Simulated scan of single mutants.
Amino acid sequence: MASNTTSAVKSAQGSSLSQFLTTLVTAAAIAVLEITIFIIIRRMFKRIYAPKTYLGDEKRRVEPLPNSLFGWLPALLRMPQEDLIRTSGFDAYFFARYIYVHGLFFLSSFVLLAIILFPIYTVDGKGESYGKKGLDLLTFGNISPRHSSRYAAPLVLAYIFVGAFLYLLYAEMKTFVEKRQALLRSSAYQSRASATTILVTGIPKSYMSQAVLLRIFDQFPGEVRYIWLNRNLEDLPDKADKRTKFVEKLETIECKLIKAALKKEAKRQKNANMNVHSIENDEGIFDKYIPETKRPTMKIGSIPVLSSLCFGKKVDTITYYKEAISQLNTDIERAKLTPQNYAVLNSAFIQFNQQIAAHMAVQSVAASVPLAMTPRYIDVKPANIV
Rank of each mutant, 00 (worst) to 15 (best):
A193V: 11
F220C: 01
F94N: 07
F20R: 08
S149D: 14
H277Q: 13
L199N: 04
A152D: 05
R78E: 14
N67H: 12
V123C: 00
I85M: 09
I285V: 14
Y342V: 06
I285Q: 09
Y189D: 08
K239N: 01
V162C: 01
T23D: 08
F246Q: 09
A383Q: 03
S129V: 11
A188G: 01
N142K: 05
L112W: 10
C310E: 05
K314D: 07
G141P: 01
V177M: 10
Y289W: 12
A358N: 07
Y130N: 06
R185M: 10
L117I: 13
Y207K: 05
V111D: 05
L33P: 00
S307G: 02
K299V: 02
S129F: 11
I35Y: 10
V369I: 13
D57R: 00
E265W: 02
R243G: 01
Q19N: 12
F90Y: 10
R42F: 02
I325F: 01
Y289M: 02
I258H: 06
P237H: 08
N4D: 13
G14Q: 12
L214V: 00
Q355V: 04
D124V: 03
I253S: 08
A240I: 15
K239W: 02
E58G: 01
L371T: 11
G71V: 01
I279K: 00
R180A: 15
P51K: 07
F176H: 11
F95P: 00
A366W: 00
Y377V: 11
